[in-house]
Nucleic acid binder design. Structure first.
Length: 256
DNA sequence: ATGGTTGTATAACAA
């Protein structure tokens, strides 16, 4: 079973890239973030034409998550934390179940700046994620998505100038470590060297060619799922195509 | 330090 996570930064704008990439990628379960479209306008037909089913929850301009599953997989999807707290973050959280596997797909709030109220929202979002991880820690479970945290100095090109960045500040890395405690970073099992990035800022000239980026998209797995992990890699190709997202897909293979 | 770019409520805001 091949899983992939991809922040598309508008699913409608990225449809040509998805139509080129998805059929060739061998992906069975794809988790999207930042679809940026209301449900009435979500482009479900192109996914169906490629042989996939799709579940989505979005809003105008911002946020939005989706689960894309190869036709024939028996999948159920629920949106939001469903923990009774407000807001529910239905357009940032999707929980998918298929067979014995459960996958939590999140688009973690970026946080704006370390002195902005949204940075605290980001931390409370992680706290609510932690509750799901606690619940699922004995299961075949993965937490995937745009987690908006580069966990270590090896996950950014220049850690020295990012100390106060909301995706790298020490307080968010520590918060992230506590949230993900007990889960393994699947990419790092197979690609331990620095220079593995999933996000390349549009504003950095020739970021892809110069490999100036961030590793902020992740696949994190429970011990029982890690036992079945067979490979994981970043597919840099779509980042180099015409009209790319600023993120690129991260894939992980499991013997399932 | 600042600014750089792209996406969408095509004007600001988010990232």
């Amino acid at each position: 079973m091949r899983l992939a996570t991809f922040n598309v930064n508008s699913v409608r704008t990225r449809m040509p890239i998805l139509q080129r990439w998805l059929p060739e990628s061998g992906t069975d379960l794809l988790f999207l973030q930042e679809t940026k479209v209301v449900d009435a306008d979500f482009p479900a037909e192109p996914f169906e034409a490629m042989g996939y089913k799709v579940w989505f929850r979005g809003e105008k301009s911002y946020n939005g998550v989706a689960v894309v599953a190869r036709e024939g997989l028996d999948v159920s999807v629920a949106f939001g934390f469903e923990d009774g707290e407000d807001p529910d973050f239905a357009t940032r959280v999707a929980l998918a179940r298929t067979g014995a596997l459960t996958v939590l797909n999140t688009y973690v709030p970026q946080g704006k700046s370390i002195d902005h109220p949204d940075f605290e929202v980001k931390k409370s979002f992680l706290d609510r994620t932690r509750k799901i991880i606690e619940r699922e820690k004995g299961a075949l479970f993965a937490w995937v998505g745009d987690l908006n945290v580069a966990p270590t100095e090896a996950d950014v090109t220049n850690p020295g100038n990012k100390k106060n960045h909301v995706c790298f500040h020490i307080s968010i890395r520590e918060h992230f470590d506590r949230t993900a405690e007990g889960l393994s970073d699947v990419l790092r099992l197979f690609r331990p060297e620095p220079g593995e990035y999933t996000f390349f800022d549009y504003r950095v000239k020739d970021a892809l060619a110069r490999n100036i980026g961030w590793r902020i998209d992740h696949v994190l797995a429970t011990p029982s799922l890690v036992e079945r992990a067979r490979d994981s890699f970043v597919d840099r190709e779509p980042r180099g195509w015409e009209r790319p997202s600023d993120h690129t897909p991260l894939l992980a293979d499991f013997d399932l």
